[in-house]
Design a protein around this nucleic acid. Structure first.
Lengths: 131, 131
DNA sequence: CTTGACCATGGAGTATGGTCAATACTTATA
DNA sequence: TATAAGTATTGACCATACTCCATGGTCAAG
């Protein structure tokens, strides 16, 4: 399929697809057509690859990491043990972020309670926010 | 104090301080000294303001939001009820992020279990990662 | 009064993940 | 065959949060 059809299949903007190609995340074939600048031909596997990229993004990987991960995978540098290792590294990263988020949340909740209970008719001052 | 002392007091790089000033997040006074380009003079309140900014960043606010928040605060557009409202909005935002993080984490953990239990001697394929 | 340390400004560069626009070529349709 | 629609490439631009650099002015010590 051509890029516009691929865009519909993946629900990605054409510009984003071209951006991914420029970054080496997608590597469609080139058709014989198109003279100079031959057209890019996308396969169903490319659709799968694009969905994989979006999934990996939701899993917290950067495009750079996704490229490295998928290139290594395509090169056959992959095994169940290695995959588990990679996944657990990411689990640890996300848990760190979650802990930071939890700390922020408990701070914010503490402030809400402090304001509600403390001095309800005094505007809180900057100083009240100190850690 | 001058900017280098302020940098030590806040543990912020001088460049970052200048960046914050350029964005209107810090508004130090100008000394009479310095001819054209008078020197910037920082007060203890500026140190507090800088710490406040860093705290707000850890609470998930962008610099743009911090500026709006603090400008409104300085303008006296602040009340306990409004502050609670703002804090609760941020709590809701962070909870959304946390939910996304939790979804990613359970996906990753599920994959780890799937690989460990499933077909231990088969390299996982791209297709196995689909949602 | 010179030298070095410190200060200010403006603009460029970095990283991330796109988004848009200009130009030029090709293909399909009428 | 002319015209519209689709395609490729290049490079600019957006937002976020810095970081670095070149230039030039200023201040304090010797």
């Amino acid at each position: 399929m051509l890029i516009s059809e691929f865009a519909k299949a993946t629900e990605l903007p054409v510009d984003t697809i071209r951006f991914y190609i420029s970054k080496g995340l997608l590597k469609p074939q080139r058709s014989a057509k198109g003279g100079s600048n031959p057209y890019q031909l996308f396969s169903p596997e490319d659709v799968t690859a694009a969905r994989m990229i979006r999934l990996q993004q939701t899993l917290g990987y950067s495009l750079r990491e996704i490229q490295a991960l998928n290139d290594a995978y395509r090169a056959g540098e992959s095994s169940p043990a290695r995959t588990v290792e990679i996944l657990q590294t990411q689990i640890a990263r996300l848990e760190e972020r979650k802990a930071a988020l939890d700390a922020a949340l408990s701070f914010l909740r503490g402030k809400v309670n402090w304001i509600k209970a403390g001095k309800p008719d005094t505007a809180p001052r900057l100083e009240d926010y100190r850690c």
